[in-house]
Design a protein around this nucleic acid. Sequence first.
RNA 1: GGGUGGUUAGCUCAGUUGGUUUAGAGCGUUUGCCCUACAAGCAAAAAGUCACUAGUUCGAAUCUAGUACCACCCA
Length: 860
Amino acid sequence: MKTYSFKKYDNLIYKIWILNKYFCSNINSNKKPYYLLLPPPNITGDLHIGHILNFTILDIYARIKRMQGYNVCWIPGTDHASIATEIKIRQLLKNKNINYISNNKFKLICLNWSKRYNQIIKDQLKRIGCSCDWHRFKFTMDKNHNKSVKKIFIKLYKKGLIYKSKKIVNWDVQAKTTISDEEVTYKKKNNYLYYIKYFTLDKKKYLTIATTRPETIFGDSAICINPNDSRYKEFINKKVVVPIVGRVIPIITDKLVDMNIGSGCLKITPAHSRKDFDIYIKHKDKIKIIDVFNEDGTLNKVCKRYKNLDRFLFRKIIIKKLKKLGYIINIKKKISNIAYSERTSTIIEKKISLQWYLKMKIFKLKALKLIKKINILPLKKYSVLLYKWINILKDWNISRQLVWGHRIPIYYYKNYTIPAYSFKQVIKILKKKLKILNIKKNQIHKDNNVLDTWFSSWILPISALNGININNNKDLKYYYPINLLVTGYDILFFWVLRMIMFSTFYIKKIPFKEIYFTGIIRDENNKKLSKSLGNYKNLYLLLNKYGADVLRVSVLDNNHIHDFVINDKKYITSRNFVNKVWNSYILINKIYNKKGINNKYKISLIIIKWFKNILNIYIKRINLLLKKKNIYYSFILIKKLFKKEFCSKFLEYIKIININILIKKKIINIYNTLLKLLHPYIPFITEYIWIKLKNESNITISIWPKTNIINNNKKINYTFDFILFIRKINFKKKNNYIYINNKYKKQIIKNIYLKLLYNLSNVKKIYFYSKLEIIKKEYKIYIYKRYKLYILYRDIIDSLDKNIIKNKIIFYSKYLLNIKKKLNNKNFLYNAPSNIIKIEKKKKNDILKKILLLKKKYLI
RNA sequence: GGGUGGUUAGCUCAGUUGGUUUAGAGCGUUUGCCCUACAAGCAAAAAGUCACUAGUUCGAAUCUAGUACCACCCA
């Protein structure tokens, strides 16, 4: 068969691994632990190619470390993704015309959804070959995890670190919940700045207010000017009337107002702007807070006859009306940044709202103390970013007005606020601690909010080992912390930073020793692959078309330090590579089944020695790169080793030689070493070949190759050099002759394996001549070392165009000029190291020769 | 508005403390090969003022500054 049929075998191979429990990890004090955590994908949908990158890198390390004898424990899991999932499911219901649904029913739908997608994601992870310990699978809405979340909340609440407060929040009018600052994206849009007159009580004078948000006019509760603004001094402490609304509001002063923006007069709507709210805090006695919007972004009853109108529709109406009544002085175009919800893509409303907050100060301090211990890779900028983020952290709004998620474990009874795990516990607390006896059950209310998703995922490194429910348990002691975390930089703030804060706060340990940030895979329009955009191909489709190994190669074959684009071309070249691996097996198999011959195996031994030497050099370099977490280059190197060295040279050489059983074994050994090197990157095909070759057990638990230095054979190198030289001669046909002076015969026979030369180049035979007269005009001369090779003109293609030659001459002449400049510079000769000067001199000579040759050619 | 990264062959990108790289790879193009592992292959060729300008240096694709364009992140 010409291709590896992944459809047939991938599944089977994974089953073998699972049946043998290779990926299961238990405490074993004889082995060093290697703890990995799969960044839990959201259950909002299938995985896509963007996930594959991180998971493949993790899998590579899991497999290598396993092969190096570590006790690898890779815990997989999924995230319930509170808001993302809720929005997704509500949208689906809406599409089915279901507009109202009870919370309990909705929860049930989410639960079923999560079951379904947990299954799909698990299956997909297995299909791409992730060597996770499936017994330890964690879903962030599992009972155990929920218990851990509650425990942490209650603990922090009792410590006084969690509080409830009214602040300005980002309000998503579609999802009807707050969202964090990090879930807000800004887009530059054309906008208008409206200049509106606000008259004084006597209607004689007016102030001009510039605003981009006239629809909040019902919420106006003051006008604010900068105290240093001389234009409006006479207005200070006076009052104006809000047009149309008719409300009388004070004019106040505050330095927060920028004199250069608009007219310098700011209308204050403290319920709908963070800046206005900050001003309100300072002038509480003079200003009221007036909220004008409903939860869905329509106007509320404050706006009287306009209530339930959409906010942007009302903007049009109010502008029309203000124009009609002559209140509008000017309308200017302005490009402004509009805040959008990353989740629903609707325009964010700033809104005052009562929410739960977590005090971050202590977390910051603890994190900053220990963060230095974490090795942050591969770019320096990420550690700079981490520090920066930590420092600007504000108190964390942890409550969300959603149904799907971890409910806040707070209960209310009359004036009491009670943190508790359950209803039963509340009653217990009321009875025992507070001595309240006649409790009516319907008087106890549970807090309506759920927790921000990240409040559940920031404890994951510890709770995945069940280290929160059981304090300081054995697993935690043995495995913790995570050895290597691999994740995209896009969740640096959301997840990575918070895990560090939690772990350093809770158990005074860093959560991971090393973190490796990858770039993000983008589509051809430079957009991040995301479930909401739907700009990616279905993973099952790709898996069925190409197989797991090919997909893994496709994502690995990019410098993933930065963002990169993946397209169909990549899949095809990757497929070609995997196919090459497969075909190497077929050839090896053929060689193995060939009848062995006893004589003449000296040359094969030399080739094997030569290749082993190359192999060792590569292994050394690969191991170094892997240690440095330089995954991309390690893969490039392995690819090069396999394709250029092993297939193009070693196999080409070995297949034309007669070999005996001893050599066969050596070849298989070499091949096995190569398979081992390839295995972490392309696990399925290598395992299949390993089994096919009747190796013991499985490659997954074989031992990672070690290096040992072998002395090289000079003759073989000489031969290969010579072959490479010959190959560069552009012969017309296959069988050609080369003529060399007889006086070099002995040397050539001594230094070069002619049989190899004949087989690997287009040369059929070298003739040694003794008389010079056979050399005439019809021969072209090539010079290799000190030998002159004569080849008949009629046998070669001299394709060089005169123009090309001319260009080359120009190019090299320029180059020569530069070198001459250098060599004529006394300072250079004085300062530069002697070896550099030697090289420059050699360069000069080489280029001179080249130019001469080219000039000769040009004249012909 | 602030920050970060990028600009190298037709395309996608490497280029690791400035000189051992006479600027590389893959894809594409052109040429020659179906020699039974692989045409999803093999061998070779052509193709680049390293965005621009100045500076540092004996020496710059590499370091510094500025400019232009592109991208991303943040307010």
